[in-house]
Simulated assay, not measured.
Amino acid sequence: MLTVNQILDLNWNKVNNLIPIIAQDIISNQILMHGYVNQKSLLITLKTKKLTFFSRTKNRLWTKGETSRNYLKVIDLVTDCDKDTLLALVQAEGDTCHLKNKSCFITKNTNISFILELEKILKNCKNNNNTSYTSRLYKKGINKISQKVGEEAVELVIAAINEDRKHVLEECADLIYHILVLLNYKNIKFIDLIKILKKRNK
Rank of each mutant, 00 (worst) to 15 (best):
D82V: 01
K148D: 15
R200E: 14
D95S: 10
T110I: 03
V74R: 01
R200V: 01
Y177D: 11
I7S: 03
N5K: 15
C104W: 05
Y133K: 10
A173T: 13
L61R: 03
R165P: 12
F190D: 05
K100F: 09
H178Y: 15
I115N: 06
Y36V: 01
R69S: 04
V181S: 01
H34N: 14
M1T: 08
L137P: 03
G141W: 09
E151C: 07
N17C: 07
S146P: 02
Q39R: 13
K120L: 06
L10D: 01
T110E: 13
L10R: 04
A159P: 03
E93H: 07
G94Q: 05
G65A: 12
K83Y: 07
S113D: 12
S68A: 05
C125E: 15
K186E: 06
T67I: 11
L118A: 02
T52M: 03
T110Q: 06
R200C: 14
T57D: 08
K123C: 08
N13M: 02
Q24L: 04
L89K: 15
L72H: 01
E66Y: 09
T85I: 13
C104E: 03
V15N: 14
Y185H: 15
T131Q: 06
D76E: 15
K202L: 14
K186N: 11
N130M: 06
K123M: 10
P20I: 01
L77C: 09
L42W: 07
I158E: 13
S55F: 04
D80Q: 05
S41Q: 04
I161Y: 12
K49D: 04
I191P: 00
K148E: 15
D9L: 08
L180T: 04
Y71H: 13
L8K: 15
Y133H: 06
K102H: 10
N16W: 00
S55A: 03
A153N: 11
D84F: 11
K108N: 14
I75D: 11
F114E: 15
K166Y: 06
K202H: 13
K202M: 13
L42V: 07
Y177L: 13
I22A: 11
C125A: 12
A92Q: 13
N184G: 02
N127P: 00
I31C: 09
N16H: 11
S68G: 08
L193Y: 09
I121S: 12
A88L: 04
K83V: 01
S103I: 02
C97Q: 10
L43F: 08
F54I: 01
K186F: 04
P20F: 12
K73R: 06
N129V: 09
K166V: 03
L32M: 10
N38F: 04
V154Y: 13
L197D: 05
G94S: 00
D192Y: 05
E170A: 11
G65D: 10
L183I: 07
I179Y: 10
K140C: 10
E93P: 00
N17H: 15
K108C: 03
R136G: 02
L193C: 14
L72M: 00
H178W: 14
Y185G: 01
L86A: 04
L46V: 01
N128C: 02
